[in-house]
Amino acid sequence: MFKNEMMKRRGIIIKKLLIIGSGGHGRCCLDIARDMNIYDQIAFLDDNHVHETINGCDVIGTVDEMSSYYPEYSDIFIAVGNNKLRKKLSMQAKEIGYYCPSLISPDSYISRYANINEGTVVFPHSVIEANANIGEGCIISSNVTINHDAVIEDYCLIYCSTVIRPNTLIGSLAIIGNNCTIISGSKIKACSDIRDGSVIEPSDKYSFEVGV
């Protein structure tokens, strides 16, 4: 606290991040946020671990207290694996006034021509190629490859070691399991749950629903 006060007096901007969720996913997001080396202070909100310290990071309150920490914390990251709940909490945070940054591991490869929208996390050793478009609030797990011109809509979860081939379209809130291959030109409908190891081709019956 003393250090923060001295920095304020000297006109130094203290950059703070609030992470919602201190479970396994939240702890991994904390690692990525630290690796990015842009935040001076990071704290958790979590209903189950209030006033605990997890991986060197304090749990300062509950999720329902989100509004109480704005604008002391202007940046917030929703580290919740459930797609629908992640979307709900993201909407609440934005209404309060928070900015939802993306957390992108320095050990991932992102083309300068790819687009990643806010609130998305990209784990280590993922590859996102030229002109791929990643929506808001997505989880791109480790060793995922998203080829050029693929579109991932908002609040999707792509598990480890999956390959999304060129010119595919993944509908919002979809879950793509581990070690899947989504063949070029395939369209996955919103809210789909694709099991581990699946190979999806354009001829498969996954009609696409826009914006669900």
Rank of each mutant, 00 (worst) to 15 (best):
T168N: 00
C156A: 09
V80N: 07
N178T: 12
F2Y: 10
D196I: 09
E5M: 06
R86S: 01
I200S: 00
H25Q: 07
D47K: 00
D204E: 09
V144H: 01
M7K: 15
E129L: 04
I139H: 02
V163W: 04
N167S: 06
S207Q: 15
I104A: 05
G135N: 06
I38C: 14
A114Y: 06
Y109A: 13
L157F: 07
H125F: 15
H125T: 15
G97H: 07
R195K: 13
E5A: 04
I188C: 00
G185F: 07
S203A: 13
I12T: 03
G61M: 13
F77E: 03
G119N: 03
S161R: 06
D31V: 08
I54G: 03
G81R: 04
D35C: 09
I42D: 06
E129Y: 02
L30I: 12
I96H: 12
I60W: 12
E209N: 11
D64Y: 11
A79K: 10
N48G: 14
G21A: 05
N55A: 06
N82P: 04
G171Y: 10
L173G: 05
E65Q: 15
P106T: 03
D64V: 15
C156S: 13
F44D: 00
I32E: 09
I76V: 15
K189L: 08
D35R: 14
I104R: 03
I200H: 00
G211L: 11
L17C: 08
N117S: 14
Y159W: 08
M1D: 14
I164E: 01
P101F: 10
S184Y: 02
L30Q: 02
N131S: 08
C57V: 07
K94M: 15
D58W: 07
Y159E: 08
S161A: 09
V127P: 00
I42V: 15
V80T: 10
E153A: 12
A93Q: 08
V212T: 13
K8L: 10
P101R: 06
I182M: 04
R10Q: 15
D193Q: 13
L30N: 04
G81W: 03
I14L: 10
I110W: 00
G24H: 09
D46C: 05
H25I: 13
Y98N: 05
N4K: 15
I146W: 01
N179L: 09
N133K: 14
G26E: 00
